[in-house]
Computed example of a mutant assay.
Amino acid sequence: MGEKRAYKPRKPGGGRKKLKPEYDAVKNLKEQMESAVALYNSKMSLQAIGDELSLNPIKVRKLLITAGVYESEVAEKVQDTFEEYREVQSYKEVVLSTANSLNLSKASVTSYLPYKKGVYFPSTEKEKISVGAERQRRYRAMKRWREEPTEEHLWDVVASYSGVHFKTYSGLPFSYEVRKGRNSEYTKELWIDRRENSKSLAWSSVVLALGNIKGKVVDRPKALGDIRGVTYIYGMFYRFGLIDVPDEVKEKMGHPKNRKNRLLCTEVCGNMCRN
C-alpha cells in the first residue's frame, strides 16, 4: 500500500456552488406571511387575500396560523391534539393519529398546522422555490400531460420549464420566461432569451407546431411548419419528449435524460385532436 496523503484542509467557500443562490425559503415565507397578515388585519377575507397573493385560501389560512393571528375551534383542537401525540410519535405518525382522532383527512390536519419549511408558490415564481421543487413540478406537469394531453396541460408543462436551458437545432443555447400582463396574470407569451434583446414567442405558434408533428423523428425545425420562432419550438419539443431528432442532431442538441418517459408523437397528437 502507498503512503497516506496528508490531510488538506478545505478552503472556505469551497464545494459545489448552489444552483439557486438567490433562493431563501425562510425569507420567502416571512415576506408572504407579513403580506397575508397585513391584508388580514385590513379585514379582507381568506379568499380575497388568496386572490391578492395568488394563493388558495387554505394556504392563506396556514400562513396566518404560522403568524399566530388566525384562531378557530378546529384549528385549536387540531394543534392541541397534534402536540399531545408529538411527545411520543414522529411527525408523520402524529399527523395520522390526529386525523384518526378527530375524524379528519391528513390534508385537513396539515392545513391547520404552521409552516415548517416554506409556502408553496406558483410554478412561475422561480426565485421563490427550491431546485428540487422545480423538478417535482416539471415532473408532475409532464405526468398530467401524458395522462391527458390537452392544450391546458401542455401550457402547464411549458410554464414549468421557464428558465430551463434548451438548445436549438444548431446547438445554440436559449431559455425563455413567462411574464405577467397588466392585470398581474401570466400571459401566454414566451420571451426567448438567447441574445441581448429578447424575442417573443406566441403560444398559438407552439400549438400550431404541435399539430404539425408527423411521425416520431422530425428531421428539422421547418418540418413543424413555416412558423415564427419554430427553431425554438423544435428545441422545446425535443426536451419535452414530444419529438425525436436525427442522431447527428442529437450531438449538437444533447441527449435529454429520462428517455423512458418520452411520448409517442402520434399518440399525443391524436389525443390532442380528439380533445
Score class of each variant (00 low, 15 high):
residue 165 H to D: 14
residue 8 K to P: 00
residue 257 K to H: 15
residue 177 E to I: 13
residue 57 P to Y: 02
residue 118 G to S: 02
residue 90 S to E: 08
residue 163 G to K: 07
residue 88 V to Y: 15
residue 164 V to W: 05
residue 223 A to S: 07
residue 18 K to E: 12
residue 201 L to P: 12
residue 117 K to D: 14
residue 129 I to E: 07
residue 19 L to N: 12
residue 57 P to W: 01
residue 241 G to L: 04
residue 245 V to F: 08
residue 255 H to K: 13
residue 103 N to T: 04
residue 173 P to T: 03
residue 44 M to Q: 05
residue 156 D to N: 11
residue 126 K to E: 07
residue 141 A to R: 02
residue 142 M to L: 15
residue 246 P to D: 06
residue 272 M to S: 04
residue 198 S to C: 01
residue 226 D to W: 03
residue 268 V to F: 08
residue 191 W to A: 03
residue 68 G to V: 00
residue 17 K to G: 09
residue 38 A to Q: 02
residue 67 A to E: 14
residue 71 E to K: 14
residue 114 P to R: 06
residue 69 V to Q: 07
residue 146 R to L: 04
residue 81 T to M: 02
residue 39 L to A: 05
residue 227 I to E: 15
residue 146 R to G: 07
residue 42 S to I: 06
residue 147 E to D: 14
residue 77 K to I: 09
residue 152 E to A: 12
residue 146 R to C: 03
residue 68 G to A: 00
residue 160 S to M: 07
residue 149 P to H: 14
residue 60 V to Q: 00
residue 1 M to W: 10
residue 274 R to G: 00
residue 20 K to T: 05
residue 132 G to T: 15
residue 85 Y to E: 01
residue 134 E to A: 08
residue 143 K to W: 15
residue 214 K to Y: 05
residue 147 E to L: 09
residue 125 E to K: 08
residue 204 S to H: 08
residue 114 P to M: 04
residue 28 N to Q: 10
residue 232 Y to W: 11
residue 150 T to M: 10
residue 202 A to F: 08
residue 54 S to Y: 11
residue 228 R to Q: 15
residue 30 K to L: 05
residue 249 V to W: 01
residue 213 I to D: 03
residue 137 R to K: 13
residue 201 L to N: 07
residue 15 G to F: 00
residue 149 P to N: 11
residue 10 R to Y: 14
residue 255 H to P: 07
residue 64 L to S: 13
residue 226 D to E: 10
residue 246 P to H: 04
residue 124 T to N: 09
residue 97 S to V: 08
residue 152 E to G: 01
residue 226 D to K: 13
residue 29 L to R: 05
residue 263 L to M: 15
residue 225 G to M: 08
residue 37 V to A: 01
residue 163 G to D: 10
residue 110 T to M: 05
residue 62 K to Y: 09
residue 229 G to F: 15
residue 193 D to Q: 09
residue 130 S to N: 03
residue 94 V to N: 07
residue 128 K to G: 11
residue 269 C to A: 12
residue 252 K to E: 11
residue 221 P to Q: 05
residue 270 G to R: 05
residue 205 S to V: 03
residue 247 D to V: 10
residue 28 N to W: 11
residue 115 Y to M: 00
residue 68 G to T: 01
residue 122 P to V: 00
residue 114 P to F: 09
residue 122 P to S: 01
residue 46 L to Y: 14
residue 18 K to F: 10
residue 186 Y to K: 06
residue 233 I to Y: 05
residue 100 N to G: 01
residue 247 D to Y: 06
